[in-house]
Simulated assay, not measured.
Amino acid sequence: MNFSPKNKASNITLLISAFVIVSLILWNTNSFFKKFKEEERLKMEIWATAQLELIQSSVDQELGNLTLKVMGNNTSTPMILVNEEGSIKTHNIPEEKATDSAYIQRKIRQYSSENEPIHIVQEGELLETLYYGNSEVLNKLKYYPLALLLIICLFGAVIFFFFKTNKASEQNKLWAGMAKETAHQIGTPLTSLLGWNELLKSEDINPDITKEIAKDITRLQTITERFSKIGSVPELREHDIVTETEKAYQYLKRRSSKLVHFAFNSEIEKLPVLLNPPLYNWSIENLVKNGIDAMKGKGSISIQIEQKGQNVHILVSDTGHGIAKSDFQNIFNPGVTSKKRGWGLGLSLVKRIVEEYHKGKIKVLSSSKEGTIMQISLKANV
Protein backbone atom coordinates (compact mmCIF):
# COMPACT_ATOMS: atom_id res chain seq x y z
CA MET A 1 0.00 0.00 0.00
CA ASN A 2 1.18 3.51 -0.73
CA PHE A 3 -0.07 7.00 -1.41
CA SER A 4 0.99 7.14 -5.06
CA PRO A 5 -1.63 8.58 -7.48
CA LYS A 6 -2.34 5.11 -8.83
CA ASN A 7 -3.37 3.73 -5.45
CA LYS A 8 -4.65 6.88 -3.76
CA ALA A 9 -8.32 6.18 -4.57
CA SER A 10 -8.14 2.61 -3.27
CA ASN A 11 -6.43 3.78 -0.07
CA ILE A 12 -9.13 6.39 0.54
CA THR A 13 -11.83 3.77 -0.11
CA LEU A 14 -10.13 1.43 2.34
CA LEU A 15 -9.97 4.12 5.03
CA ILE A 16 -13.63 5.09 4.52
CA SER A 17 -14.67 1.42 4.68
CA ALA A 18 -12.72 0.97 7.91
CA PHE A 19 -14.37 4.07 9.37
CA VAL A 20 -17.86 2.80 8.42
CA ILE A 21 -17.16 -0.64 9.93
CA VAL A 22 -15.88 0.91 13.16
CA SER A 23 -18.90 3.22 13.35
CA LEU A 24 -21.26 0.27 12.91
CA ILE A 25 -19.46 -1.68 15.65
CA LEU A 26 -19.70 1.28 18.04
CA TRP A 27 -23.37 1.88 17.18
CA ASN A 28 -24.19 -1.79 17.67
CA THR A 29 -22.32 -1.88 20.98
CA ASN A 30 -24.16 1.22 22.20
CA SER A 31 -27.53 -0.28 21.18
CA PHE A 32 -26.70 -3.52 22.98
CA PHE A 33 -25.70 -1.57 26.09
CA LYS A 34 -28.99 0.33 26.13
CA LYS A 35 -31.01 -2.84 25.63
CA PHE A 36 -29.10 -4.63 28.38
CA LYS A 37 -29.66 -1.65 30.67
CA GLU A 38 -33.42 -1.69 29.96
CA GLU A 39 -33.56 -5.40 30.77
CA GLU A 40 -31.70 -4.77 34.00
CA ARG A 41 -34.18 -2.02 34.84
CA LEU A 42 -37.04 -4.44 34.23
CA LYS A 43 -35.37 -7.01 36.47
CA MET A 44 -35.07 -4.45 39.26
CA GLU A 45 -38.73 -3.44 38.88
CA ILE A 46 -39.66 -7.10 39.25
CA TRP A 47 -37.46 -7.28 42.31
CA ALA A 48 -39.19 -4.15 43.76
CA THR A 49 -42.58 -5.74 43.09
CA ALA A 50 -41.38 -8.89 44.86
CA GLN A 51 -40.28 -6.74 47.79
CA LEU A 52 -43.75 -5.21 47.98
CA GLU A 53 -45.32 -8.68 47.81
CA LEU A 54 -43.01 -9.80 50.59
CA ILE A 55 -44.27 -6.97 52.80
CA GLN A 56 -47.87 -8.01 52.07
CA SER A 57 -47.33 -11.79 52.29
CA SER A 58 -47.44 -12.20 56.06
CA VAL A 59 -50.81 -14.01 55.74
CA ASP A 60 -49.81 -16.11 52.74
CA GLN A 61 -46.66 -18.10 53.47
CA GLU A 62 -46.63 -19.81 50.03
CA LEU A 63 -46.60 -16.52 48.23
CA GLY A 64 -43.81 -15.36 50.53
CA ASN A 65 -41.63 -18.35 49.61
CA LEU A 66 -42.16 -17.66 45.90
CA THR A 67 -41.29 -14.01 46.40
CA LEU A 68 -38.11 -14.89 48.29
CA LYS A 69 -37.11 -17.19 45.46
CA VAL A 70 -37.59 -14.39 42.91
CA MET A 71 -35.61 -11.98 45.07
CA GLY A 72 -32.83 -14.49 45.68
CA ASN A 73 -32.14 -14.86 41.96
CA ASN A 74 -30.56 -11.41 41.86
CA THR A 75 -26.93 -11.96 42.84
CA SER A 76 -25.15 -9.47 40.59
CA THR A 77 -26.81 -6.05 40.82
CA PRO A 78 -25.77 -3.96 43.87
CA MET A 79 -28.77 -2.45 45.69
CA ILE A 80 -29.53 -0.17 48.62
CA LEU A 81 -33.05 -0.21 50.09
CA VAL A 82 -34.11 2.78 52.18
CA ASN A 83 -37.50 2.81 53.99
CA GLU A 84 -39.54 5.84 55.01
CA GLU A 85 -37.87 5.87 58.44
CA GLY A 86 -34.38 6.03 56.91
CA SER A 87 -33.44 2.45 57.72
CA ILE A 88 -31.01 1.00 55.18
CA LYS A 89 -30.63 -2.51 53.82
CA THR A 90 -28.02 -3.54 51.26
CA HIS A 91 -27.81 -6.36 48.75
CA ASN A 92 -24.77 -7.55 46.79
CA ILE A 93 -22.53 -5.08 48.59
CA PRO A 94 -19.51 -6.35 50.60
CA GLU A 95 -20.33 -6.70 54.31
CA GLU A 96 -17.35 -4.60 55.42
CA LYS A 97 -18.66 -1.71 53.27
CA ALA A 98 -22.32 -2.11 54.20
CA THR A 99 -21.69 -0.74 57.71
CA ASP A 100 -19.82 2.34 56.45
CA SER A 101 -22.47 5.10 56.35
CA ALA A 102 -20.27 7.50 54.36
CA TYR A 103 -19.62 4.82 51.76
CA ILE A 104 -23.35 4.00 51.55
CA GLN A 105 -24.26 7.66 51.07
CA ARG A 106 -21.70 7.96 48.24
CA LYS A 107 -23.14 4.84 46.63
CA ILE A 108 -26.69 6.20 46.90
CA ARG A 109 -25.61 9.33 45.00
CA GLN A 110 -23.72 7.24 42.44
CA TYR A 111 -26.64 4.84 41.89
CA SER A 112 -29.05 7.78 41.55
CA SER A 113 -26.91 9.20 38.74
CA GLU A 114 -26.63 5.81 37.01
CA ASN A 115 -30.25 4.70 37.30
CA GLU A 116 -33.50 6.36 38.36
CA PRO A 117 -34.48 5.09 41.85
CA ILE A 118 -37.53 2.82 42.08
CA HIS A 119 -40.17 3.81 44.62
CA ILE A 120 -42.06 1.00 46.33
CA VAL A 121 -45.54 2.40 46.97
CA GLN A 122 -48.61 0.84 48.65
CA GLU A 123 -51.97 2.62 48.32
CA GLY A 124 -50.25 5.91 47.57
CA GLU A 125 -47.88 5.65 50.53
CA LEU A 126 -44.12 5.45 49.93
CA LEU A 127 -42.78 2.45 51.78
CA GLU A 128 -39.23 2.12 50.48
CA THR A 129 -36.90 3.52 47.82
CA LEU A 130 -34.65 1.19 45.86
CA TYR A 131 -31.30 2.51 44.62
CA TYR A 132 -29.39 0.18 42.33
CA GLY A 133 -26.17 0.37 40.37
CA ASN A 134 -25.00 -1.28 37.22
CA SER A 135 -24.12 -4.95 37.41
CA GLU A 136 -20.53 -6.07 36.85
CA VAL A 137 -21.36 -7.25 33.34
CA LEU A 138 -22.96 -3.90 32.48
CA ASN A 139 -19.98 -1.99 33.85
CA LYS A 140 -17.62 -4.03 31.71
CA LEU A 141 -19.85 -3.52 28.70
CA LYS A 142 -19.90 0.24 29.39
CA TYR A 143 -16.11 0.45 29.01
CA TYR A 144 -16.01 -1.86 26.01
CA PRO A 145 -16.43 1.00 23.45
CA LEU A 146 -13.54 2.85 25.09
CA ALA A 147 -11.35 -0.24 24.84
CA LEU A 148 -12.46 -0.67 21.24
CA LEU A 149 -11.64 2.95 20.45
CA LEU A 150 -8.21 2.52 22.01
CA ILE A 151 -7.58 -0.57 19.88
CA ILE A 152 -8.77 1.31 16.80
CA CYS A 153 -6.48 4.26 17.60
CA LEU A 154 -3.53 1.89 18.01
CA PHE A 155 -4.47 0.15 14.78
CA GLY A 156 -4.73 3.54 13.06
CA ALA A 157 -1.31 4.51 14.40
CA VAL A 158 0.17 1.28 13.03
CA ILE A 159 -1.39 1.98 9.61
CA PHE A 160 -0.15 5.58 9.70
CA PHE A 161 3.43 4.56 10.50
CA PHE A 162 3.23 1.80 7.90
CA PHE A 163 2.22 4.33 5.25
CA LYS A 164 4.85 6.77 6.47
CA THR A 165 7.59 4.13 6.44
CA ASN A 166 6.44 2.88 3.07
CA LYS A 167 6.55 6.41 1.68
CA ALA A 168 10.01 6.99 3.18
CA SER A 169 11.17 3.73 1.60
CA GLU A 170 9.91 4.89 -1.78
CA GLN A 171 11.70 8.22 -1.34
CA ASN A 172 14.92 6.37 -0.45
CA LYS A 173 14.57 4.30 -3.61
CA LEU A 174 14.03 7.50 -5.58
CA TRP A 175 17.15 9.13 -4.11
CA ALA A 176 19.15 5.96 -4.76
CA GLY A 177 17.92 5.92 -8.35
CA MET A 178 18.81 9.60 -8.79
CA ALA A 179 22.28 8.96 -7.35
CA LYS A 180 22.88 6.09 -9.76
CA GLU A 181 21.61 8.18 -12.67
CA THR A 182 23.91 11.04 -11.63
CA ALA A 183 26.86 8.65 -11.57
CA HIS A 184 25.89 7.43 -15.03
CA GLN A 185 25.60 10.98 -16.39
CA ILE A 186 28.98 12.03 -14.94
CA GLY A 187 30.65 9.14 -16.75
CA THR A 188 30.33 10.76 -20.20
CA PRO A 189 32.16 14.06 -19.47
CA LEU A 190 34.74 12.14 -17.44
CA THR A 191 35.69 10.10 -20.48
CA SER A 192 36.00 13.34 -22.44
CA LEU A 193 38.18 14.92 -19.73
CA LEU A 194 40.53 11.93 -19.85
CA GLY A 195 40.96 12.52 -23.58
CA TRP A 196 41.59 16.24 -23.18
CA ASN A 197 44.15 15.58 -20.47
CA GLU A 198 46.03 13.22 -22.80
CA LEU A 199 46.09 15.98 -25.41
CA LEU A 200 47.46 18.44 -22.83
CA LYS A 201 50.27 16.03 -22.04
CA SER A 202 51.41 16.27 -25.65
CA GLU A 203 51.62 20.06 -25.38
CA ASP A 204 54.60 21.95 -23.99
CA ILE A 205 53.18 22.64 -20.52
CA ASN A 206 54.25 21.91 -16.98
CA PRO A 207 53.75 18.13 -16.44
CA ASP A 208 52.76 18.80 -12.83
CA ILE A 209 49.60 20.45 -14.11
CA THR A 210 48.44 17.42 -16.08
CA LYS A 211 49.43 15.20 -13.18
CA GLU A 212 47.14 17.13 -10.82
CA ILE A 213 44.36 17.18 -13.42
CA ALA A 214 44.70 13.38 -13.65
CA LYS A 215 44.35 13.13 -9.89
CA ASP A 216 41.18 15.22 -9.95
CA ILE A 217 39.78 13.09 -12.77
CA THR A 218 40.55 10.01 -10.71
CA ARG A 219 38.80 11.73 -7.83
CA LEU A 220 35.71 12.30 -9.96
CA GLN A 221 35.78 8.65 -10.97
CA THR A 222 35.87 7.70 -7.29
CA ILE A 223 32.90 9.97 -6.55
CA THR A 224 31.04 8.44 -9.48
CA GLU A 225 31.73 4.97 -8.12
CA ARG A 226 30.46 6.02 -4.68
CA PHE A 227 27.19 7.31 -6.09
CA SER A 228 26.75 4.19 -8.17
CA LYS A 229 26.97 2.05 -5.00
CA ILE A 230 24.19 3.91 -3.15
CA GLY A 231 21.23 1.64 -2.53
CA SER A 232 23.18 -1.59 -3.10
CA VAL A 233 25.25 -3.79 -0.80
CA PRO A 234 28.93 -2.95 -1.38
CA GLU A 235 31.57 -5.62 -1.91
CA LEU A 236 34.14 -5.86 0.89
CA ARG A 237 37.67 -7.05 0.22
CA GLU A 238 40.82 -7.24 2.27
CA HIS A 239 42.76 -3.95 2.21
CA ASP A 240 45.43 -2.35 4.34
CA ILE A 241 43.64 0.08 6.68
CA VAL A 242 46.74 2.30 7.06
CA THR A 243 47.23 2.73 3.30
CA GLU A 244 43.56 3.44 2.60
CA THR A 245 43.27 5.94 5.46
CA GLU A 246 46.43 7.77 4.44
CA LYS A 247 45.23 7.88 0.84
CA ALA A 248 42.10 9.84 1.82
CA TYR A 249 44.16 11.98 4.22
CA GLN A 250 46.76 12.95 1.62
CA TYR A 251 44.17 13.92 -0.99
CA LEU A 252 42.42 16.32 1.40
CA LYS A 253 45.70 17.69 2.75
CA ARG A 254 46.85 18.81 -0.71
CA ARG A 255 43.52 20.50 -1.45
CA SER A 256 42.84 22.22 1.87
CA SER A 257 43.76 25.68 3.10
CA LYS A 258 47.30 26.30 4.30
CA LEU A 259 45.73 27.55 7.52
CA VAL A 260 44.83 23.95 8.39
CA HIS A 261 47.66 21.93 9.90
CA PHE A 262 47.43 18.20 9.12
CA ALA A 263 49.02 15.36 11.09
CA PHE A 264 48.94 11.61 10.46
CA ASN A 265 50.18 8.97 12.88
CA SER A 266 49.79 5.21 12.97
CA GLU A 267 50.93 2.82 15.69
CA ILE A 268 50.90 0.00 13.15
CA GLU A 269 52.59 -0.29 9.76
CA LYS A 270 50.07 -2.54 8.10
CA LEU A 271 46.82 -4.24 9.09
CA PRO A 272 44.35 -6.05 6.79
CA VAL A 273 40.67 -5.11 7.17
CA LEU A 274 37.66 -6.00 5.04
CA LEU A 275 36.87 -2.71 3.30
CA ASN A 276 35.14 -1.09 0.40
CA PRO A 277 37.79 1.60 -0.30
CA PRO A 278 35.60 4.20 -2.08
CA LEU A 279 33.02 4.17 0.73
CA TYR A 280 35.57 3.98 3.55
CA ASN A 281 37.56 6.89 2.09
CA TRP A 282 34.29 8.80 1.78
CA SER A 283 33.76 8.35 5.53
CA ILE A 284 37.24 9.64 6.39
CA GLU A 285 36.81 12.63 4.09
CA ASN A 286 33.45 13.49 5.64
CA LEU A 287 34.93 13.43 9.15
CA VAL A 288 37.89 15.56 8.10
CA LYS A 289 35.69 18.09 6.28
CA ASN A 290 33.36 18.31 9.30
CA GLY A 291 36.40 19.02 11.46
CA ILE A 292 37.60 21.77 9.10
CA ASP A 293 34.11 23.33 9.11
CA ALA A 294 34.04 23.20 12.93
CA MET A 295 37.36 25.06 13.00
CA LYS A 296 36.06 27.61 10.46
CA GLY A 297 38.95 26.72 8.13
CA LYS A 298 41.76 27.36 10.60
CA GLY A 299 43.26 24.89 13.09
CA SER A 300 44.68 21.39 13.33
CA ILE A 301 43.38 18.08 11.98
CA SER A 302 45.00 14.83 13.01
CA ILE A 303 44.34 11.19 12.17
CA GLN A 304 45.65 8.44 14.38
CA ILE A 305 45.41 4.68 13.89
CA GLU A 306 45.81 2.28 16.78
CA GLN A 307 45.13 -1.41 17.33
CA LYS A 308 43.33 -2.77 20.40
CA GLY A 309 43.17 -6.55 20.30
CA GLN A 310 41.09 -7.64 17.31
CA ASN A 311 39.90 -4.08 16.65
CA VAL A 312 41.51 -1.13 14.93
CA HIS A 313 40.54 2.42 15.94
CA ILE A 314 40.78 5.37 13.56
CA LEU A 315 40.72 8.65 15.51
CA VAL A 316 39.95 11.88 13.67
CA SER A 317 40.66 14.96 15.83
CA ASP A 318 40.04 18.64 15.24
CA THR A 319 40.44 21.86 17.23
CA GLY A 320 36.95 23.16 16.53
CA HIS A 321 34.28 24.54 18.86
CA GLY A 322 33.20 21.10 20.09
CA ILE A 323 29.88 19.26 20.39
CA ALA A 324 27.46 19.37 23.32
CA LYS A 325 27.34 16.03 25.14
CA SER A 326 23.57 15.87 24.67
CA ASP A 327 24.17 15.86 20.89
CA PHE A 328 26.69 13.00 20.80
CA GLN A 329 24.02 10.68 19.36
CA ASN A 330 21.84 13.26 17.59
CA ILE A 331 24.58 14.39 15.20
CA PHE A 332 24.32 11.03 13.40
CA ASN A 333 20.62 11.58 12.61
CA PRO A 334 19.74 12.72 9.06
CA GLY A 335 19.11 16.46 8.77
CA VAL A 336 20.99 17.42 11.96
CA THR A 337 23.58 20.11 11.24
CA SER A 338 25.02 23.19 12.90
CA LYS A 339 25.93 24.76 9.56
CA LYS A 340 23.80 27.37 7.82
CA ARG A 341 24.29 25.53 4.56
CA GLY A 342 24.11 21.79 4.01
CA TRP A 343 21.70 18.90 4.28
CA GLY A 344 23.00 17.38 7.50
CA LEU A 345 23.60 14.03 5.80
CA GLY A 346 27.39 13.69 6.14
CA LEU A 347 27.62 12.00 9.56
CA SER A 348 24.44 10.03 8.92
CA LEU A 349 26.07 8.65 5.77
CA VAL A 350 29.31 7.91 7.64
CA LYS A 351 27.38 5.98 10.31
CA ARG A 352 25.62 3.91 7.67
CA ILE A 353 28.86 3.15 5.82
CA VAL A 354 30.73 2.18 9.00
CA GLU A 355 28.03 0.32 10.92
CA GLU A 356 25.75 -1.17 8.25
CA TYR A 357 28.24 -1.88 5.46
CA HIS A 358 31.46 -2.50 7.41
CA LYS A 359 29.87 -3.83 10.66
CA GLY A 360 31.95 -1.41 12.69
CA LYS A 361 31.20 1.37 15.18
CA ILE A 362 31.47 5.14 15.11
CA LYS A 363 31.08 7.50 18.04
CA VAL A 364 32.14 10.82 19.50
CA LEU A 365 35.03 9.74 21.70
CA SER A 366 35.34 13.12 23.40
CA SER A 367 34.49 16.76 22.78
CA SER A 368 35.10 20.10 24.45
CA LYS A 369 35.72 23.72 23.54
CA GLU A 370 39.28 22.69 22.62
CA GLY A 371 38.12 20.22 19.98
CA THR A 372 36.48 16.91 19.12
CA ILE A 373 37.72 13.35 18.61
CA MET A 374 35.65 11.02 16.41
CA GLN A 375 36.43 7.30 16.57
CA ILE A 376 35.80 4.62 13.93
CA SER A 377 36.25 1.06 15.14
CA LEU A 378 36.63 -1.83 12.69
CA LYS A 379 37.50 -5.48 13.13
CA ALA A 380 40.89 -6.55 11.82
CA ASN A 381 40.89 -9.42 9.34
CA VAL A 382 43.60 -11.47 11.05
Rank of each mutant, 00 (worst) to 15 (best):
L149W: 03
Q307S: 13
Q110D: 08
H239Y: 15
E244V: 15
E212K: 15
G187N: 12
N30P: 00
N286W: 00
N311R: 11
T243A: 14
S326F: 00
S338G: 14
I373A: 03
S135R: 09
K164P: 00
I152C: 12
W27F: 14
P278G: 08
Y144K: 03
S135L: 06
F3N: 09
R41S: 09
L150E: 00
V121S: 07
A214E: 13
L138W: 01
W47A: 09
N134R: 13
D240G: 08
K211D: 02
I55A: 09
V233C: 00
P189A: 03
K142T: 12
F264T: 09
M178D: 02
E238N: 11
T77Q: 06
L148H: 06
M295W: 04
L52G: 03
K173H: 07
E116T: 15
Y131P: 09
E96L: 08
I303S: 03
I55F: 09
Q310T: 12
E269N: 15
D293E: 05
T319K: 10
E128L: 11
G344F: 05
G360E: 01
K253S: 05
G156V: 08
L199K: 14
T49H: 07
F264C: 09
I284F: 02
L236R: 11
N30I: 08
S31N: 12
F163N: 03
E125M: 12
S348Y: 14
P277D: 05
I223T: 12
S87Q: 13
S257G: 09
E96K: 13
A18T: 14
V350Y: 04
H313E: 10
G64S: 15
V288S: 04
L148Q: 07
M374Q: 05
P277S: 10
N311C: 01
K379L: 11
S266W: 05
S4I: 12
D318T: 06
N330E: 06
A102Q: 10
K325F: 00
C153N: 02
H261K: 15
S31C: 01
P277H: 09
F160A: 13
V316W: 01
R219P: 00
G187D: 13
F33H: 11
F162E: 04
I152S: 13
E85G: 03
Q304E: 11
I55E: 12
G344H: 04
T29I: 11
I223L: 15
A18Q: 04
E45W: 02
G297E: 04
K167M: 06
L349R: 03
S87D: 10
E85Q: 14
R41C: 02
G231S: 06
F32E: 07
T182A: 12
V82E: 05
E62Y: 04
P117L: 10
L315S: 04
S256Q: 06
G124F: 08
L154W: 04
G342E: 02
F262E: 03
S300P: 00
I301F: 04
K89T: 10
R106Y: 02
L349W: 00
L275Q: 08
T191C: 00
S256P: 12
Y132D: 02
Q221T: 15
Y143G: 02
K201N: 11
V336N: 11
K201A: 10
L236P: 05
N265Y: 12
P207C: 07
K6A: 09
L194G: 02
I268M: 10
L26Q: 08
G309Q: 04
H261Q: 14
S192D: 06
N276S: 13
I217C: 06
T319C: 03
K308I: 13
Q122I: 14
